[in-house]
Design a protein around this nucleic acid. Structure first.
Length: 414
DNA sequence: TCTCCACAGGAACAAGCGGTAG
DNA sequence: CTACCGCTTGTTCCTGTGGAGA
């Protein structure tokens, strides 16, 4: 590959790039000027924020929809607009504090928020404080800040799932007299709409004053988005006629995610470029679709902790040796041998059981229940939910497990 | 109909980490 | 230094479960 995927467009390269005019337009961090097919949602957003503009207490907003449906982009747009327009308002000063809650606990998210008000040299650590401490620090900052309104934007709040204390505290900060000089509001963004039902009743009533739903895009909407972007991203006449409708159709059936569709289109372009092709064809799109799907799975496998990698690898080896459905016991037996060989501490069967259920939740394993009654009782049988080659490929990048995945065969271990 | 297998999965607990506060 | 904090990872113990077969 000649070009780095994420390198900015450098003039010397764009000269002989026959495919792309500006590939950045297809990448994740690009914010378009127009948001096709999201006019209603933007209007709902504007309406919900109108009280703030008028100087009143903000309404708390719950934004939900699957990934790639434009929630974050729309939110950024609204924030930009409001930041721009508030210069015209005399007695209102609005500050936005935005964090992403992915992989954070409620407590850690609180710490992040406190640090948003502090210089890097003065950041507090994410351990060692009591919960009440962290909250009090946050209230103090809010009280002291030079603004009439502070709006917290918490992206991916579904990560906070079990512990929703923060989601209760922030919307109630004014009502509970924790903060009096500044009006506090919360915009919560969630990828998961069942998340709302799991919130405790007290959080539901305060967080979800206004709700904005971003539905997955249909094929027509995706076509509009892809057309808008591809005109800027690709050189004229590079895309075969059916490419955009095909991408839109495939993605609409699958996820309805604009991010996914753009990713596939971008990938199709790079495949064509690597083949020294002048046009992007429907065949490139199909190849890109496979590559994107496989790439995502491999990334997830690489991101697993070593123990979980060992477990899924064990299942892969057993499956490849012809044992399609294996019990926890069988997995644990072989797993222990792999542990010994790689110098990893072997965990108990109960722990492996937990790992197996997590892997099942992530879709890496399929589970069937078997019940032989008196002659064997109830048990689960596991098999791989993904292609075994993907697991081997992914583990090639994990030094500890690389040797295992190249050398081991079932005969050596069973 | 009832028993009983072999496991699932919840609960309680422990250890260790990286930190703050006095 | 000691006490304490939140969090993660793992362990042990124990109750619950569904259906084949006595």
């Amino acid at each position: 590959m000649v070009l780095e995927l994420h390198s900015p467009a450098v003039p010397t390269f764009t000269q002989d790039d026959r495919i792309f005019r500006d590939e950045n337009v297809l990448q994740d961090d690009y914010t378009p000027k127009d948001l096709p097919a999201r006019e209603d949602e933007l209007e709902a957003y504007t309406n919900s924020l109108q009280p703030v503009v008028n100087g009143a207490s903000p309404r708390n907003i719950f934004v939900y929809g699957e990934t790639g449906t434009g929630k974050t982009v729309a939110t950024n747009r609204i924030i930009d607009d409001l930041n721009r327009d508030q210069k015209n308002f005399e007695d209102v000063e609005i500050k936005f504090v935005k964090i992403n809650c992915k992989d954070l606990t409620s407590y850690q998210a609180g710490v992040h928020l406190v640090n948003e008000f502090r210089e890097p040299s003065n950041h507090i650590n994410s351990t060692g404080h009591s919960r009440a401490d962290v909250n009090n620090k946050l209230w103090t900052h809010l009280e002291e800040i030079d603004a009439t309104h502070v709006l917290f934007v918490l992206d991916e709040i579904d990560s906070l799932s079990e512990d929703d204390d923060l989601l209760y505290q922030i919307p109630r900060a004014n009502a509970n007299a924790k903060v009096e000089g500044t009006k506090v509001g919360l915009i919560g963004i969630s990828n998961n709409f069942t998340f709302r039902q799991n919130l405790s009743a007290r959080v539901q009533s305060s967080l979800c004053e206004d709700e904005i739903h971003f539905a997955p895009y249909d094929a027509n909407q995706l076509t509009a988005i892809l057309k808008q972007r591809s005109e800027k991203a690709f050189s004229d006449g590079v895309l075969e006629e059916g490419v955009v409708p095909l991408t839109a159709g495939l993605v609409a059936q699958d996820t309805g995610s604009a991010r996914n569709a753009l990713d596939i289109l971008y990938r199709a372009g790079t495949i064509a470029r690597n083949e020294n092709n002048d046009v992007v064809t429907e065949n490139h799109v199909r190849q890109a679709m496979d590559a994107v799907e496989n790439g995502l799975i491999k990334d997830e496998i690489r991101a697993l902790p070593t123990q979980a990698q060992l477990v899924i690898y064990t299942v892969a080896v057993l499956n490849q040796s012809g044992q399609n459905q294996v019990t926890k016991k069988e997995i644990h037996r072989l797993y222990k041998k792999f542990c010994k060989r790689t110098g990893v501490n072997a965990k108990s069967q109960r722990t492996i059981h937990n790992k197996l259920s997590k892997l099942q939740l992530k879709g890496f394993l399929n589970v069937t229940e078997e019940n032989k009654g008196r002659g064997g009782g109830k048990r689960y049988k596991y098999e791989l939910g993904v292609d075994a080659d993907l697991i081997n490929d992914a583990l090639q990048d994990t030094p500890r497990l690389r040797d295992l995945s190249t050398n081991s065969t079932i005969s050596q271990f069973s």
